Simulated scan of single mutants.
Amino acid sequence: MTEEPRLSAQDIIERLAPALSRRTRIRALAALLAGLAGAVFMVTLWWSEPGSLPDRTQLAFAVLTAFCLAWAGYGGWLLTRRVVLFATDQVVAAWIGLAASLVTTAVIAVVAVQRGAGVGVPLAAGGLFVALALGLAVRAHARQAALLRRLRELTDREER
C-alpha cells in the first residue's frame, strides 16, 4: 500500500476555499470603488470652491479625502491578497472605522466650540459612532485571535 502524503494544516486550509470568498471580494471591491468615488468627489468639490477657503474647511476636505483614500487603499489591498487572512481584513477595517470616528468626533466638537454652540449633541453622536467602531474592533481582534489560536492547535497537533 502506498501511503498518502500528509498535508499540513496550512495546506488543508488553502485547499478548503479560495483565499478570498466571493463575499469578501465583493466587499473589497465595494470599499475600493466607494473610496475612490468619495475621494474624487471630495477633491472635485474642494477644487471647485470659488476663492480661498478658511483653514478649518481646508482641513475638513483634506481629512475626508484621506478617509476615502484609506478605504480605497483597504479595498485594493484586500483584492490583491492571495493568502488566508485569518480576519486581518476585519481588524484593518475596524481600525480605519475607529480612526475615522475619533477624528470626525474631535473635529466636529472643535467646530462646535469655535462657533459657541453646545458640544453635547456632537459629542453624544460622535461617542455613539466611536463606541460602535470600538466594539467592532474588539470583535475583530477576538475573531482573529480565535482563528490564529485554532491554527496553532492544528499545527501543534500535526507536529506530534
Rank of each mutant, 00 (worst) to 15 (best):
A106C: 13
D55E: 14
Q58V: 13
Q90I: 00
A60P: 00
I108E: 15
R81W: 02
W95C: 07
W71C: 00
D55W: 10
R81G: 03
V83C: 04
V111W: 12
W46S: 09
W47S: 11
A62T: 08
A106K: 08
V103G: 08
V110L: 14
Q58G: 04
A60Y: 00
V84F: 13
A72S: 07
S101Q: 10
P54D: 15
Q58C: 05
A87P: 02
R56T: 11
C68T: 06
A72R: 00
A106R: 10
V111Q: 15
W46Q: 06
L64G: 04
Q114S: 13
A99S: 13
L79S: 04
G97K: 02
W95N: 11
Q114H: 11
D55P: 04
R115D: 15
A93L: 14
D89C: 02
A87N: 11
T88M: 12
Y74T: 01
W95H: 13
G116V: 05
A106T: 15
A100S: 10
G116M: 05
G97W: 01
L69R: 04
A106W: 15
Q58F: 02
V91D: 06
L79C: 04
T105K: 07
T105R: 06
A94V: 06
P54I: 05
L98E: 13
V63M: 10
A99C: 10
A70W: 00
A109Q: 09
W46A: 07
V113K: 13
I108L: 15
